[in-house]
């Protein structure tokens, strides 16, 4: 029994390792290019699609596939800035916080949650979706998507051989993430991340209009979860 357990765990780790979330063949930017080469993204930043002051709310058409289940509906993301006291003085600082509501087309709520630096609160969840393991993975997904901890830790910049993608590596809110930009560094193509071996997440971005991706696909290969978002409105 014990050997079966260890074999299973080993197999799980092996399988999760095979997902290859960290991009391969990365070279630090400083080693890769001559010193006089212009590189617009030598100082990487995390995606700012959902950042203040430009972002307030967005409505997406959503579809979620999890194993044999297929759910469709609407996903609404609204920024709800939180004021917290600064550590240094009596000033308050505004931190990015988000409320996310997902419902079916008839308006019935699938889930309602909050994401902020150090906070992930599930306010409501449709009972069949009420699984801790699922929410641990979706927390990673939404933290990668919204980047509420942006700017809190240093980011290292790499170039991926063959593709020439610029890769920004960082650790934000306990999640290791790799942001893959086009070779010119002006278009975010993918974000990959994980907080543990059990929650690798892969986000792809496409169909940019006015510097916002109209199609976002989130994939969690380990539990076969796919969340596809198509932008309906943004302000």
């Amino acid at each position: 029994m014990r050997s079966f357990l260890f074999t299973s765990i080993g197999l799980l780790l092996l399988l999760s390792g095979c997902q290859s979330i960290p991009p391969r063949h990365l070279t630090p930017v400083s080693h890769h290019l001559p010193s006089d080469t212009f590189l617009p993204t030598a100082h990487c930043t995390l995606p700012t699609f959902f950042s203040p002051p430009t972002f307030q709310r967005a409505l997406f058409k959503a579809s979620m596939d999890i194993r044999e289940h297929h759910l469709t509906g609407l996903l609404f993301i609204k920024m709800i800035p939180q004021l917290r006291s600064s550590r240094c003085d009596n000033d308050t600082v505004s931190l990015p916080a988000y409320r996310i509501v997902c419902s079916n087309e008839l308006g019935m709520t699938y889930f309602d949650l909050e994401v902020a630096p150090g906070v992930f609160r599930l306010n409501y969840c449709f009972e069949p979706l009420n699984k801790n393991a699922l929410w641990r993975i979706l927390e990673t997904d939404f933290r990668l998507l919204l980047s509420p901890e942006a700017g809190t830790t240093p980011i290292k910049t790499f170039v991926q051989e063959e593709s020439n993608y610029l890769v920004c590596k960082s650790k934000q809110g306990g999640i290791s993430r790799w942001d893959l930009y086009s070779p010119m560094g002006d278009t975010l193509l993918e974000v990959r991340g994980k907080s543990s071996l059990a929650d690798p997440s892969w986000i792809s971005y496409a169909e940019y209009h006015r510097e916002f991706p109209f199609r976002i696909n989130i994939s969690n290969p380990l539990i076969k979860l796919k969340l596809s978002l198509s932008l309906l409105s943004l302000n």
């Binding site: 709310r57 409505l59 609407l74 609404f76 609204k78 709800i80 409320r99 509501v101 419902s103 087309e105 008839l106 308006g107 306010n123």
Partner: peptide
């Protein structure tokens, strides 16, 4: 017309 009122967010989705 369908209005989903999100009372805490003070917002709504119109379809």
């Amino acid at each position: 017309t369908q209005e989903k009122e999100m009372t805490i967010l003070k917002d709504r989705i119109l379809t």
